[in-house]
């Protein structure tokens, strides 16, 4: 990139920390795996540690843990209804995992595993497949009604069904690209502006203000994207359970 010594793409590089080979596959423990593990660790400490006291009147951490629980529970209930109850642990895990991955990645010098399309796409495709399976298990072949709008004239099926099919298949792409692109854009932006701060030296305070503002915005984006990923998962679940 143009900013000389600072390459805004460098932060996305996956580096091997502990080489592991399983058959023909390279499953080395990388910085990506490290930060995934860190995310798991911190989520667990946050939720299990804060609720250790089981306080009736919660402290700050416990009430944050309760808030995240209730937020996801409401999200699921509002978007899926009571039938979504059994998927709550999965949806909650998904939200916390992505949220912590996004937020930890905003600390300078860390790695953001959600800024890798392969990670977001893997999550999206797993959700996509799971939701499709749930749909077929619940409705059998009736699940295919999802691809034909209720009450539309029959002759439009020729055109509407392929369109709905393409639309349905585009879900994992839009789901994964959204998270990936948001994370990449935010981090590149931060890195470039941080580069300006260093380049301008004494006058670096001007972009520093911008940097602080954008960092605040990126925290919001980090939370919002975790939320959006979760709410879309809920909406897909709703479609699979209730058809449209």
């Amino acid at each position: 990139m143009a900013s000389g010594s600072i390459d805004p793409m460098h932060q996305f590089e996956v580096t091997t920390l502990l080489p592991i080979q399983l058959g023909n596959y390279d499953i080395s423990f990388t910085n990506s795996a490290l930060f995934m593990s860190l995310s798991v660790l911190l989520v667990t400490i946050f939720l299990v540690g804060s609720t250790r006291g089981r306080a009736l009147v919660p402290g700050r951490w416990q009430s944050m843990a309760e808030m995240s629980y209730e937020m996801v529970a409401n999200l699921l209930r509002d978007n899926v209804g009571s039938a979504g109850r059994q998927y709550f642990p999965f949806v909650f895990t998904l939200f916390m995992f992505i949220l912590f991955g996004n937020v930890i990645g905003l600390v300078p010098g860390t790695f953001t595993f959600t800024s890798h399309i392969v990670v977001t796409f893997a999550m999206a495709i797993i959700i996509f497949l799971a939701v499709t399976v749930i749909g077929f298990v619940r409705h059998g072949a009736g699940f295919l009604r999802l691809f034909f709008p209720h009450g539309a004239p029959l002759w439009t099926a020729v055109i509407l069904i392929p369109i709905e099919l393409v639309s349905y298949l585009s879900r994992p792409i839009s789901l994964s690209v959204r998270l990936f692109a948001n994370m990449v854009v935010g981090h590149v932006l931060l890195k470039v502006i941080a580069g300006f701060v260093i380049m301008l030296g004494v006058f670096g305070f001007i972009p520093l203000g911008v940097l602080v503002g954008i960092t605040a915005l990126e925290f919001l984006v980090a939370a919002l994207q975790a939320y959006v990923f979760t709410i879309l998962t809920c909406i897909y679940l709703h479609d699979a359970i209730h058809l449209h």
């Binding site: 393409v166 585009s170 839009s174 690209v177 919002l224």
Partner: peptide, 21 residues
């Protein structure tokens, strides 16, 4: 703060559908 997110979401939906097709 979701105005931006909504705009982004719609553009991603469009791009994803085009790529898929």
């Amino acid at each position: 703060a979701s105005g931006m997110a909504v705009g982004f979401r719609i553009s991603v939906e469009i791009v994803a559908a085009l790529i898929m097709g």
